[in-house]
Amino acid sequence: MQYTDKSGTVTCDTKFADQIRRAGGEDIDRCYQCLTCTLGCPMAKYMDYPPSEIIRLVQLGLKDRVLGCSTIWICASCEACVTRCPNEVNIPHLMDILHQTTLREGITPREPNVAAFHNAFLGPVKRFGRQYEALMSAEHFVRSRDFSMKTLKVAAALGMGMITRGKLKLMPPKSGKGKAEVQRLFNATLSRRGDRPEGK
């Protein structure tokens, strides 16, 4: 099966679709394209493909389009869709799977800034067992590679405001009792990725 449109003809990658299903996205097949998710999605207007279309892209195995789209990074995981989906398709979860798949496959995320934040967010959590906002900010700053003065100024002003109001702690969090568990979770999750695509 192929899919063809203005931007060319793609052969449907059924293996990709199966990979996503195996990674926890098997519920996408219940979708009957009723558009409830799309119509109720607060972020839909910023997306290049609304959620219902993401499902169809995965079903059709249009890997490059899915992994190269901005939607998966724009999704705010607010869960409005899954709450209302008559087929209980867990779209936020699907988005997560697609994030991971994109990163693992070394594809440049369509929204690098969001991807950068995604990694910057997880880094401190893995290290400290909880969020360390200052480190996260710094890491995001570095990862996003946006060193323009304008960004710096905005970030500095925001950072200072938060620091003075005590919303941003400069010291790292004390290693609490949850740290070990969190790290175990990370490890367990990563080790379970036995189903990662060949050659990766």
């Binding site: 099966m1 192929q2 899919y3 063809t4 449109d5 203005k6 931007s7 003809t9 394209q33 493909y49 219902s52 279309e53 169809r56 892209l57 059709l60």
Partner: peptide
Amino acid sequence: RETALPRNDGNIVM
């Protein structure tokens, strides 16, 4: 025509 992806106006070819 793949109606689920209307903006693409693409076709499924089998």
